[in-house]
Design a protein around this nucleic acid. Structure first.
Length: 573
DNA sequence: GCCGTTTTCGGCCCGACTGTTTTCAGTCG
């Protein structure tokens, strides 16, 4: 059973307990455990069986036992018992925005309503406003929320690339307003998370209410709440929630820190502050015994007041960044400026949109010293396959390009993205691969294999002496396709032993390796390569996403191989 | 249910907003 399924079971259990009226901290404990499980880069089921899941934060003996029971019985016994007392469909009702467990339970107790359809009918008939604490406004909100979910889905997450694009447009629109001071994109988009649920914007303004109105007036905004001097909440036409918060410049650092999150990071920060006798909020850092309040114009001031080094947004996920900051041991994160070349791109020879010369020119424009041309291999299919003869001609074309345009400042590398066959074999004979500067091995077929077979298959490719790098190792497509069933630990161990590099693919749908696995790989000594997998000149810019993932993994420039010159990188191979 | 620079018991981040109330509970991020 995968971490995601285990986590879902504990989220459900938390809600069932909440509906049952359990202590709210117990509910929180299940939610925290679910988050830890979903976040873990290692299979928590296996850990629990080995009695080691309690090493994870927020998982004690009780939850570990429940994980094992879930694996053995397909269900958590406590959840089964609760579902005998309460309809399981009540859990769905709590997912309606503005409708929580307390409200769902009261409605169920007083009317017997337990389904979304039942709730809609009762709200439409005005049957809920008779209940204590619920009025006509509540019924309107329920109907609106149901309509929105039907039209747009359940507050679904979106790719970071989509959210950053819309966020940047909104920020630019606000900055152009006469009342605007600072306007900054915050939240998960600022942390460069894989996916985002909403857009958070932090601002200062000479006339805050006017700036809040300016957001509502933006072309992208469809609906909005009540604007005030504190900001406004709104929603884009395509359904993304937008939260604008406005504060005096003297508190901008406090608010930016607060709204950048993550929630887990802020909770840990505030718990630590409490131990120091301090209370942290978006308005300042207050002494618990006393009146002094520290307001910070910038974030560095917030962390400094708490005795911490500045923590980059990409690291603020509530993992170990606070203890590292406390000890002055935060890594110096790799930046896009450190990257000296891209090692994964396609041209019109396979499925790319631009020619070799166009890709080379775009790479030079980005200031790169090298670009590896890595078109798909012989069995790629889709009419985009590159037979061995075509590839060898391409090697000559690369040599010709370098002879004519190459210099110490820039050169092309002859490469290939070679399919890994179902048996772990590669798509070209060794004497062809030997002609290449750079070989990426990737899986593009037969995704649904057993974990054992898929792991053996990829480990075999990683151990091949002519393979430089493993491409998009888990095959995940964010929000679209689950990763292959794969023992990532075993692949990392094999790469470390064989001296094979592993890619962080910067296609915003991939980000593969993901940040947590990339950290494990780097800790195992595997050189990481940040690439774009660009299929056109424009997407060479996706290096931002690859590097962001590396930063979220806590990687320094030294751990990213393509911060080196090509001559230095070659020595690592 | 978890956890320990005060603790194996007694706490558990903090505030904004909403709708319903006559001072606050519920929900959310």
């Amino acid at each position: 059973m995968h971490n995601a399924e285990i986590a879902a079971a504990f989220r459900e259990l938390g809600t069932l307990y909440e509906l049952d009226g359990a202590n709210r901290f117990r509910v929180l404990a299940y939610r925290d455990a679910a988050r830890t499980i979903a976040e873990s880069p290692v299979p928590v089921g296996e850990l629990a069986r080995a009695g080691r899941a309690t090493e994870l934060e927020g998982i004690g003996d009780t939850i570990q036992e429940k994980i094992v029971a879930l694996l053995d019985e397909g269900e958590i016994p406590a959840a089964r018992k609760l579902k005998q007392r309460l309809p399981a469909t009540l859990v769905e009702l709590t997912r309606l925005p503005g409708v929580g467990a307390k409200t769902v339970r009261r409605i169920y107790d007083e009317t017997g309503i337990a389904t979304l359809e039942g709730l809609r009918a009762a709200a439409a008939a005005g049957e809920l406003s008779g209940l204590r604490g619920l009025g006509p406004k509540f019924e309107q909100n329920v109907l609106a929320a149901l309509d929105r979910i039907e039209a747009e889905g359940d507050g679904e997450r979106r790719l970071l690339s989509d959210v950053r694009e819309i966020g940047a447009e909104l920020v630019a629109g606000l900055r152009s307003h006469a009342a605007a001071g600072e306007v900054i994109l915050a939240g998960s988009a600022r942390r460069w998370a894989d996916t985002c649920k909403d857009i958070d914007i932090v601002a200062t303004a000479s006339d805050p209410t006017a700036l809040a109105h300016a957001l509502i007036g933006h072309d992208l905004i469809g609906e909005a709440g009540n604007p005030s001097a504190n900001g406004v909440r709104a929603r884009t036409h395509n359904g993304i929630a937008v939260d604008l918060r406005i504060v005096p410049a003297a508190e901008l650092g406090n608010l930016l820190q607060h709204l950048t999150g993550s929630a887990a990071h802020n909770v840990k920060l505030r718990e630590r502050a409490q131990r120091m006798g301090l209370s942290v909020s978006e308005h300042g850092i207050a002494e618990i015994e006393g009146d002094a309040v520290t307001r910070c114009a910038d974030e560095a001031g917030v962390y400094a007041r708490l005795g911490l080094d500045y923590i980059e947004p990409e690291l603020r996920e509530g993992r170990d960044e606070i203890s590292l900051a406390e000890r002055g041991e935060l890594p110096e994160l790799v930046t896009v400026a450190d990257i000296r070349g891209d090692l994964h791109c396609h041209t019109t020879l396979s499925d790319g949109r631009n020619t070799l010369a166009e890709m080379a020119a775009a790479a030079r424009d980005r200031g790169y010293a090298y670009l590896a041309i890595t078109d798909h291999s012989a069995t790629h299919g889709f009419g985009d396959d590159v037979q061995a003869g075509d590839l060898l001609r391409r090697v000559d074309e690369v040599a010709a390009y370098n002879a004519e345009h190459g210099s110490r400042r820039f050169r092309l590398l002859a490469g290939s993205e070679v399919n890994i066959g179902a048996d772990g074999g590669l798509d070209y004979p060794d004497d062809v691969l030997e002609r290449l500067d750079w070989v990426i091995a990737s899986v593009h077929t037969s995704f649904r294999m057993s974990k054992r077979r898929m792991t053996d298959r990829i480990v075999a490719a990683v151990r091949h002496p002519l393979v430089s790098c493993l491409g998009h190792p888990t095959g995940r497509l964010l929000l679209r396709r689950e990763p292959y069933d794969l023992d990532v630990d075993a692949v990392i161990a094999a790469a470390a032993e064989a001296g094979t590099m592993i890619e962080i693919n910067g296609n915003p749908s991939r980000r593969d390796l993901g940040d947590r696995h990339a950290r494990l790989a780097a800790e195992a000594g595997v050189p990481i390569v940040c690439t774009t997998d660009a299929h056109r000149t424009r997407t060479l810019a996706n290096m931002d996403f690859a590097v962001a993932t590396a930063r979220r993994a806590g990687l320094s420039a030294k751990q990213v191989a393509n911060t080196r010159t090509w001559a230095q990188l070659r020595k690592l191979l």
